[in-house]
Deep mutational scan, measured.
Amino acid sequence: FLTKYFNKQPYPTRREIEKLAASLWLWKSDIASHFSNKRKK
């Protein structure tokens, strides 16, 4: 799911990160680090 979202929006806003974190029961920092790691590849 996160990879699909990343393909659409590689630079999510803070609000989008909060929404993703809430819906996936993850920490915002986990979401942010996932996106930054994907951008590095």
Rank of each mutant, 00 (worst) to 15 (best):
F1L: 00
A32E: 02
S36T: 13
L26C: 11
W25F: 07
L26A: 08
F35Y: 05
F6H: 01
Y11D: 10
S29C: 06
S23C: 08
H34I: 13
K38C: 06
K40L: 03
L24P: 04
I31W: 08
K40D: 05
N37Q: 08
R39T: 06
A22G: 10
N37D: 07
K41Q: 15
Y11Q: 15
R14D: 00
N37L: 13
K28P: 15
K4S: 01
H34R: 10
A22W: 06
F35Q: 05
S29Y: 03
A21M: 14
T3V: 02
Y11T: 14
S29E: 04
I31C: 10
L20M: 15
F35D: 07
L2D: 00
D30R: 11
W27Q: 02
N7S: 09
F1G: 01
Q9F: 05
F35N: 06
F6Y: 04
K28V: 15
T3K: 15
P10A: 09
R14K: 10
Q9G: 08
S33T: 10
W27D: 05
R39G: 06
L20Q: 02
L26D: 12
T3H: 03
S36H: 12
F1Y: 06
W25A: 13
S23H: 09
K41C: 04
I17W: 15
S29Q: 15
N7D: 11
S23T: 10
Y5A: 00
R39W: 12
R39S: 10
T13K: 10
E16Q: 11
L20Y: 13
E18V: 02
F6P: 00
L2H: 01
K40I: 04
S23Q: 02
W27H: 08
H34V: 14
E18P: 06
I17A: 08
A21R: 11
L26S: 13
I17E: 01
E18Y: 03
S36I: 09
L2K: 01
L20T: 09
S36N: 04
S33Q: 11
R39M: 14
F6N: 01
K40S: 05
L20N: 07
N7T: 05
I31Q: 08
A32L: 12
K38E: 03
R15D: 04
L24F: 06
F6S: 01
K40W: 08
D30M: 10
K40G: 10
A21Q: 03
T3P: 00
S36C: 12
S36P: 10
I17V: 11
Y5H: 15
A22Y: 04
E16H: 08
W25N: 11
T13I: 14
E16N: 06
Q9C: 11
Y5N: 02
S33I: 07
K4A: 01
L20F: 13
R15P: 09
P12E: 13
Y5C: 15
K38F: 04
N7Q: 04
Q9M: 09
P12M: 09
E16R: 13
K28E: 02
H34W: 13
K19T: 04
L24Q: 01
W25S: 14
H34F: 09
N37Y: 12
P12V: 01
N37F: 11
W25L: 14
K8M: 01
P10I: 09
E16D: 12
K38H: 09
I31V: 15
Y11S: 15
K8D: 03
T3L: 01
D30N: 01
I31H: 08
P10D: 12
W27N: 04
S23R: 15
Q9K: 11
A21D: 02
L2R: 01
S36D: 07
Q9T: 10
F1R: 00
I17P: 04
K28Y: 02
A21L: 10
E16A: 08
K38W: 05
R15F: 02
S33M: 10
L26G: 14
F1M: 07
A21Y: 07
I17T: 01
L24K: 04
I31M: 13
K41G: 08
H34D: 03
L2W: 13
K38M: 09
L24E: 00
A32S: 06
K19A: 02
K8A: 00
L20C: 14
L20V: 11
L2P: 02
Q9D: 07
F6C: 05
K40M: 10
P10L: 07
A32D: 05
P12Y: 01
R39C: 06
K19P: 00
K28M: 15
S23N: 10
S36Y: 03
R14A: 01
A22Q: 13
Q9W: 00
L24D: 11
S23L: 06
L20A: 11
F6T: 03
L26E: 14
Y11P: 08
N7C: 02
P10Q: 15
A21T: 08
A21E: 03
E18G: 08
N37S: 11
E18D: 09
P12R: 08
A22H: 11
T13W: 15
I17N: 01
K4E: 00
L2C: 01
P12C: 02
F1P: 03
A21K: 14
N37M: 12
D30T: 06
N37P: 09
A21S: 12
L2V: 03
N7W: 00
A21P: 04
L26V: 13
L20W: 15
N37V: 09
Q9A: 04
A22P: 04
L24M: 15
A22I: 03
W25P: 07
E16F: 15
A21G: 15
I17K: 02
E18K: 15
I31P: 09
T3S: 12
R14S: 03
R15Y: 03
R15M: 06
Y11E: 12
Q9I: 10
E18S: 06
D30H: 08
L24C: 08
K41P: 06
R39A: 10
K28A: 15
L26Y: 07
K19E: 05
R15H: 03
A32C: 14
L2S: 00
K8H: 00
S23K: 15
I31L: 11
Y11V: 13
N7P: 12
K38Y: 02
K38R: 09
R15T: 12
Q9Y: 02
R15N: 07
H34M: 13
K8L: 00
K28R: 06
I31Y: 06
A22K: 14
K41Y: 03
F6W: 09
W25C: 08
W27S: 10
T13Y: 14
S23F: 01
A21W: 12
W27T: 07
W27M: 11
H34Y: 07
E18H: 05
H34K: 12
K19R: 09
N7M: 01
E18F: 01
K19L: 01
R15E: 11
W27Y: 05
L26P: 15
T3A: 04
K8W: 00
R15A: 14
L26H: 15
Q9L: 07
W25Q: 13
T3G: 08
L24R: 03
W25Y: 05
I31N: 07
Q9P: 01
K4N: 02
K8R: 05
N7V: 00
F35C: 03
W25E: 14
K4R: 02
N37W: 12
T3N: 15
Y11M: 13
W27G: 13
T3D: 04
W25H: 14
A22C: 05
K19H: 02
K40R: 07
L20P: 08
S33D: 04
N37G: 12
A32T: 10
N37T: 10
S29H: 14
A21C: 09
K4G: 00
R15V: 07
H34N: 09
E16P: 15
P10F: 09
K38V: 08
F35E: 10
D30C: 03
R15C: 06
F1C: 00
R39Q: 06
S29A: 11
S29V: 04
K41N: 07
Y11N: 14
A21H: 02
T13A: 12
S33Y: 03
D30K: 14
R14W: 04
N7L: 00
K38S: 06
E16L: 06
P10K: 08
K4T: 00
R15G: 09
K41D: 11
A32R: 13
S33F: 05
S23W: 09
D30Y: 10
R14Q: 04
L26F: 13
F35T: 05
P12F: 03
Y5I: 09
K38P: 06
P12G: 14
R15S: 11
K40P: 04
F35S: 07
K19D: 09
A22F: 01
R14E: 00
K8G: 05
Y11W: 12
R39N: 12
